[in-house]
Amino acid sequence: MSVAEATAGTQAKQPTELFGKKERKIVKDPLWDNNPITLQVLGICSALAVTTSLKPTLVMCIALTAVLCGSNVIISIMRNFIPNKIRIIVMLSVISSLVILVDQLLKAFSYGMSKELSVFVSLIITNCIVMGRAEAFAMANKPWASFLDGLGNSLGYSIILIMVGFGRELLGSGKLLGFQVIPEALYQMGYVDVGLMITPPGAFILLGFIIWIQRTSSKHFED
């Protein structure tokens, strides 16, 4: 959607230093003012599916960061050799190779978590953030800038995901990372967990409100 306009400004530059002003801008912009989920509308599926509690949310964020940074760098290195007509399939094969790596690592070192996330790690392949950034940024920029863009966007994605995961676990089961946070006394006074937050509709509605807050604060409105 707004990807094209968003990157148009950063496209022509030639990075000369590692952490110059432009480089910092590439990382900082997607964190809030051009957030991939709430403003670019990319990668919403996984933002909802894995956020029932905070722990799988964090694992998902790490997995996406690894894939996005990796794919941005590799595609950016290859950008001059990829024929334009078959670029989609080339990108898809780069991305799916990286996702297979992450998936196998997760299965090897944290089998329980890999079962809990089920198909959603595999679905990073079709996560629009990865394809979107490869197409909009990595195909036109040098590897270092692309790496920073991948980092910024995955952090922006993580911020929203952690907000949703935090809200859903706290309101839905009164816990954070599996530890009871809401005191027992409150339950005795009649407090009840919001069961809706654990279910799919709760995720949609909570994300709706987060988008509302985010867009109001960054002054981005649709008509």
């Binding site: 509308v41 995720a203 709706g208 867009r215 409105f221």
Partner: peptide, 23 residues
Amino acid sequence: LPAGLRGLGITMIITGLMAIGFM
């Protein structure tokens, strides 16, 4: 609608309501 809710925001909330229906 409130300006910040227009477009994506309200669509998510309505999807949530639809999901309650399907639930």
